[in-house]
Simulated scan of single mutants.
Amino acid sequence: MSTLRERNRLRTRDDIATAAITLFEQHGYEATTTEQIAKAAGVSVATYFRHFPSKEDVLFADEDRSAAAMVERVSERTDRSVSVSALAEPVAAFAVDLEDERTFRLTHLVMTNRQLEPRSLRMRLRWEREVSRRLAAEQGRAEPSQDDSLVASVAITCLATALRFWDKTSSSTGLSDLVRHMFVRCAQVIDEDGQSGQRKVSA
C-alpha cells in the first residue's frame, strides 16, 4: 500500500507533467521554460528538478515503465515463436494501454518537435533492445541473435509507424488498430517484394 508521502509525490509529479504538456501546446516546446512550468504547476523550480532532471524528461517520464510493460506483454504472448507475426498481438496490447487523451497529446508533441527526435529514437532503440533480449532469454541465449534483433526491430518499427500516423488523427483511440494494420501491411510488403524478386530471377 502506498504511503501518503508517496501519493503526494506522484500527485506533484503528475501536476508538473500536466502543466508542461499544456504550456508546450500553447507556446511551443522550445519557447517554454522550466520556470514557467513550475509556476503553472504551483511548485518551486527546485521541486521541479527533484522530479525531472530536464525539460524533455517531462515528456519521457514513463520511459522505464513503458519498456517494462512492453517486455511483459511479449513474455505473455501465446505464440512463442521468434517471428514478427508472433509479436503483433503483444505490441497491439501494449498500444491499448497508451490509448488515452494525455498520451495522445504527448505523442503529438514528441512527433512534431525535431528537438525531441534524439530522445524519441533512444526510447525506440530501448524497446528494440529489451524485446530482443527477452526473445533471446526465452531461447536460452545470453545475447540476442541476428534473428532476435531483426524481429524486435521490425515489430517496434510497426509500433513507431502507428504512433506517427496516430498523431495525424483526431482521436485518442484507435492506436491498437493502427498497430495491427502496420503488422499486416509489413507482411504484405515483404511478401510483395519477395514475389517481385522471384519474378525477376525467373525472367
Rank of each mutant, 00 (worst) to 15 (best):
E89G: 06
E35N: 12
V184D: 12
E35T: 15
S172Y: 01
E143A: 15
P144L: 12
K168H: 03
A17Q: 14
R134N: 12
F60N: 08
R80M: 09
R11P: 00
A19F: 07
K200A: 13
D100K: 03
K168C: 02
S171L: 01
V84H: 10
V179I: 10
L159P: 00
S81W: 00
E89D: 10
L163F: 01
H27I: 09
L59D: 06
V189H: 04
A20L: 10
S2G: 03
H108V: 04
R50P: 02
C158R: 01
T173I: 05
A20I: 12
R122A: 14
L135K: 07
I190F: 04
V91Q: 02
R77S: 04
D62N: 14
L98V: 12
A142M: 09
D191L: 04
R126V: 04
R50D: 14
K55S: 12
K55I: 10
I21W: 02
T169Q: 02
A46Y: 00
M123G: 03
S149K: 02
S176F: 01
H27R: 15
T161E: 09
L98I: 12
Q198R: 13
L150C: 09
D57I: 00
R80C: 06
H51A: 06
A92S: 11
A187P: 00
S120C: 07
R180C: 02
S120E: 09
E99W: 10
S2E: 15
G194R: 05
Q198E: 13
L4C: 03
L116N: 09
D148V: 05
V201W: 04
S81I: 07
A136I: 04
V131D: 09
C158K: 00
H108D: 02
S153M: 09
R102Y: 03
T78G: 02
T173S: 07
R9S: 14
A40Y: 08
Q36C: 01
D147R: 07
S66R: 05
F183D: 08
D193Y: 01
A41P: 00
A31P: 01
E25L: 11
F49L: 14
D100W: 04
V151L: 08
Q139V: 03
F60H: 07
T173K: 04
E63K: 10
L109P: 03
T33I: 10
